[in-house]
Design a protein around this nucleic acid. Structure first.
Lengths: 348, 348
DNA sequence: TTGTAGGCGTTATCAA
DNA sequence: TTGATAACGCCTACAA
């Protein structure tokens, strides 16, 4: 004992296998397996022996063998479609961290949902069949793609959805309370003294965008707003923000505070202000949503709602990896209002 | 023959295996394997039979079994550290596409290179050992991390580097000619009539940033520039762009054209212009580099150099997956100048 | 609590 | 050009 080292494993300089560990520890293969998988019914003494051998040999279980033989694959799949870079990278980072901490790998799959329906199913089938995965994390807009959800359910594949709009109890999921977050933004502007408001909407298909708008408006009414709230269409893009900003700024009387459904369109609104000869925040306050990377790529820095996107990724992966079958509940994470320089009291 | 269908595979409703295909085609296991792997010495007739069976059974090879038995894993690893969202997502998209087209999976691994050296090696070892991968695609700044490169070489693991700065012939790689690209930007500004130039540098540690600066300056000299070229430090960030912009705009006489080493700092320069009461492009022209997503999130839209980042990802993965041992050559892809609204002739 | 036998789906070796 | 048979490294029964 103790004389064996990494050079004496069964296959020359190859990595140690379970068999090497078993030999060194003087136990059976199955016992090593039990320790590795933290199965019950293992005596402390045996566990200690095995763990010592593992450490000495620098043993790491082989993922391919494990997934071939067992029911788990130690792989988490992350699915997205037409990703917005900032949002996606943050989600991915969070998912990755949970994977790493729980000894899983992260596999990426892009899905193109713009293809015809039949090709879409074929695409999914190919992806999933070839893909021993323990489950998938779904990001918007895939989160609400019924064809995909049906497919996964039919195939018996687990998944967790991030920020689902529809059928919230169909699967485990993580989200924030968009309405409450928008209400916080409304309160912030109200307390600064604003009384004339405008809202730049997100895409109609995007449920969270709708909840943000509604939450903002409802809170204003609750606070006693009397002036009509001006609204303009938007689609989350910078360009749509410029157009929407120009539109609401043309209203008479002009709004003194503009809430946009996300940061990108808020950045566009700021450009519209500048084009109209108005200073942010002295003449007009602008508030965004997401606290994405844009928020600090505009001047003045944008007041916005922080969404814990990375945390959502972490939580989603953790939900997926729970051994006990998780309930189909939607986990709500905390947001926070980030007050920067784009909001201030209205002119006199 | 032909009567067998997917329901009659060996294990009920499970997926078809190679054995099912072999039986249906009336050939041996190994023959199916040969067809799948496009090995030589297969008669056309046999191939046809096997392919028909594969199609009928909807057979897809099992990745886990393949990597356990064989030498390939059908997995490409993508490594990054401290990713800039836009750049990284583009690289990732390109790498993914090649993977998908060549029936490989894409695995993500984040590396934290800010940890102490010893922990860093341990981190790498854990990642690689546990990771049957056919190789890795390295993105900056990992591309030039000597500890990582040494580690991979020592472990005999293949890798392809994207935009390497150091030791360009150490491994296969893809890049663009940064100096030539910056020269193109210089020519564009020169031809607009500018004669007073400023450069906002990138981080000193970033080789490409240095090449951009040098390429820009050299080209101006070649064109016959006589005025001194004003320079300011920058680190690729929006904030550093604001500071650098303010600095170069304070010079007398003021430059009429500013070239920044990337789009983010160019966006900062535009803010500095605005803060100095100068209009872009009427008073000052600003040119960036990357054609990242920021370029169209500022107003006016940024003139910049397009880097084929997604294409670089595609090419890097393709290089990695070549069966014939590739040479350690650096493949240069094409850039292009994207003229938008932030550049114009200088004031009279 | 521990160990034994068999199989997961493929590739590799060698013989035919 | 084809085919039997043995790995690959681990897990799931089941037995002790």
């Amino acid at each position: 004992m103790g004389e064996m080292n990494i050079a004496s494993t069964s296959r020359g300089n190859a990595h140690a296998t379970m068999e090497d560990v078993a030999k060194l520890a003087g136990v059976s293969l199955k016992s090593v397996s039990r320790v590795i998988n933290a199965e019950p019914h293992v005596s402390a003494k045996l566990r200690a022996k095995v763990e010592a051998a593992i450490a000495e040999l620098n043993y790491v279980p082989d993922t391919a063998a494990r997934s071939l033989a067992g029911s788990r694959a130690f792989i988490v799949g992350l699915l997205f479609d037409n990703p917005s870079p900032n949002y996606t990278m943050n989600i991915q980072k969070g998912v990755y961290e949970t994977c790493r901490d729980q000894q899983h790998h992260l596999r990426i799959d892009n899905i193109d949902s713009t293809v015809p329906a039949e090709k879409f199913e074929a695409q999914l089938a190919a992806m999933v069949r070839n893909s021993r995965c323990d489950g998938f994390v779904l990001t918007p807009p895939l989160t609400d793609n019924v064809v995909l959800l049906d497919f996964l359910d039919r195939s018996g594949i687990r998944y967790v959805r991030i920020a689902p709009d529809i059928q919230p109890d169909r699967s485990p999921g993580v989200c924030i309370d968009d309405a409450a977050a928008a209400a916080a933004a409304a309160r912030h502007l109200w307390e600064l003294g604003h009384r004339r408001f405008a809202v730049v909407r997100g895409p109609a298909s995007h449920g969270a965008a709708g909840r943000r708008r509604q939450g903002f408006i409802d809170e204003l009414h609750r606070l006693g707003a009397e002036n009509p709230i001006i609204e303009a269409e938007g689609n989350f893009s910078f360009e749509s923000g410029i157009a929407a900003g120009a539109k609401v700024l043309a209203a008479t009387p002009r709004p003194t505070a503009i809430f946009a459904a996300n940061d990108d369109s808020a950045a566009g609104v700021m450009v519209a202000c500048s084009q109209a000869g108005l200073k942010v925040p002295n003449d007009v306050s602008v508030c965004g949503f997401d606290d994405s990377w844009v928020a600090k790529s505009v001047w003045p820095y944008l007041t916005t709602v922080y969404q814990p996107i990375e945390e959502m990724g972490r939580a989603a992966a953790a939900l997926l990896l729970r051994r006990d079958e998780p309930d189909n509940v939607l986990h709500e994470l905390d947001f926070s209002l980030v007050v920067r320089a784009s909001t201030a009291p209205p002119p006199q």
